[in-house]
Amino acid sequence: MSDVSEVEILRLSAFPAAPGGGNPAGVVLDARGLDEARMQRIAAEVGYSETVFAVDPVVHGDARHVRVRYFSPTAEVPFCGHATIALSVALAERLGTGPFRFATPAGEVEIATAPGSVAPEASFTSVEPSVRELPADAARELLDLLGVARDDLDPRWPLLEAFAGNAHPVVALRSGDVFDGLAFDPGALRALMDRAGWPGTVTVVRFPDGDSDDSGEARVEARNLFPVGEITEDPATGSAAAALGAYVRELRGASAPARLVVDQGRHVGRPSVLTVDIPPRGGITVSGTALPIG
């Protein structure tokens, strides 16, 4: 008998922009008694980019304080935004909307949930983010693997690494043709990501010509490359969206858009939308919902 058949697993799609959109996540609401090896086998059998496990669903007797772990089909990851949203929605449907707190391997993450038109809306506020330069050799290898020349980069937005739970290199392109035509060797990119300490995704983004509209909101399109198993690109990536918010704040400071609306998933046929709120300091907030699959 498979591990999956013995454990109750919810399957939800987080951040859908339309029916059939969003990023699938497995959700195990009670993973007490599951060891690391078994959780890894379950994540591999589920086959989604991540499955989240509530390894302690009632921390110190509080059902709204949950200790969680995240597994891709091949390895544990410190944090996963879309699985966090999926778990938040599932808990809100059972316990009622309101605040939650997740103890993750990346740190404590504050959750807010509220009633939505179809399903609860959820948001998480990331751990304290940071932004740093990419090592020159990793930057060169990354651009070579993506087939991107230095002239293809958007000069307003330099190549940097942003962290808001996971480390993500951020590659901003100025050409829509280059953005749409990305091609890469998944195995070679995975090897670079493992060496460079990028457990999440490589974030490739196109910014609008202006920084934001009169409301302080900017709409961007992102592709998040994630070679793991049969997957090569993520349809919606909450941790990358939070890191992107940190990246924008680092480069624009007080003039940063207060909100980014991130479109993702077009290239893999799963349209998604993530809302990113950027405060002057502290964690970045990412919002969306999740719907049952099937």
Rank of each mutant, 00 (worst) to 15 (best):
Met193Asn: 04
Gly229Lys: 10
Asp151Tyr: 04
Val286Ser: 13
Ala236Asn: 03
Glu221Thr: 15
Ser175Tyr: 07
Arg67His: 15
Val220His: 14
Ser123Leu: 00
Glu76Val: 02
Gly33Cys: 08
Ala63His: 15
Thr201Cys: 07
Val262Phe: 00
Glu36Asp: 10
Ser2Gln: 07
His168Asp: 12
Gly210Glu: 14
Arg69Trp: 00
Ser13Lys: 10
Phe179Ser: 11
Ser130Ala: 15
Pro235Asp: 03
Thr203Phe: 02
Gly294Glu: 11
Ala37Tyr: 05
Thr104Arg: 04
Asp56Tyr: 13
Glu141Lys: 02
Gly165Ile: 02
Glu121Gln: 13
Ala54His: 11
Val127Pro: 09
Gly197Thr: 03
Ala37Lys: 09
Val109Ile: 11
Asp3Cys: 12
Val52Ala: 11
Ala122Asp: 13
Leu291Thr: 09
Pro186Ala: 13
Ala258His: 09
Leu189Glu: 07
Val178Ile: 04
Phe15Thr: 03
Pro280Ile: 00
Tyr48Gln: 00
Ser272Cys: 03
Val228His: 10
Val148Met: 09
Val276Gly: 09
Ser72Gln: 07
Gly107Arg: 06
His82Arg: 09
Gly238His: 06
Leu91Thr: 05
Gly165Ala: 01
Gly181Pro: 12
Glu221Val: 15
Gly269Pro: 10
Gly187Pro: 04
Gly197Asn: 01
Leu251Asn: 05
Leu274Phe: 08
Arg67Trp: 13
Leu244Phe: 13
Ser212Gly: 04
Phe163Leu: 02
Gly116Ser: 00
Ala112Lys: 01
Gly20Met: 08
Asp56Lys: 08
Ala25Ser: 15
Arg94Glu: 01
Val4Met: 08
Arg64Gln: 14
Glu110Arg: 14
Ala63Cys: 07
Arg150Leu: 05
Val68Thr: 14
Ile293Asn: 09
Trp198Gln: 10
Leu244Ile: 00
Val268Arg: 12
Val66Gly: 08
Val273Ala: 11
Glu250Ala: 13
Asp180Arg: 05
Val109Trp: 08
Val7Ile: 13
Pro257Ala: 05
Asp211Gly: 03
Ser212Arg: 15
Val7Lys: 04
Arg190Ile: 08
Ser2Asn: 14
Val7Gly: 05
Val262Asn: 02
Ala236Arg: 01
Ala191Thr: 14
Gly238Arg: 07
Ala44Arg: 15
Trp157Ser: 04
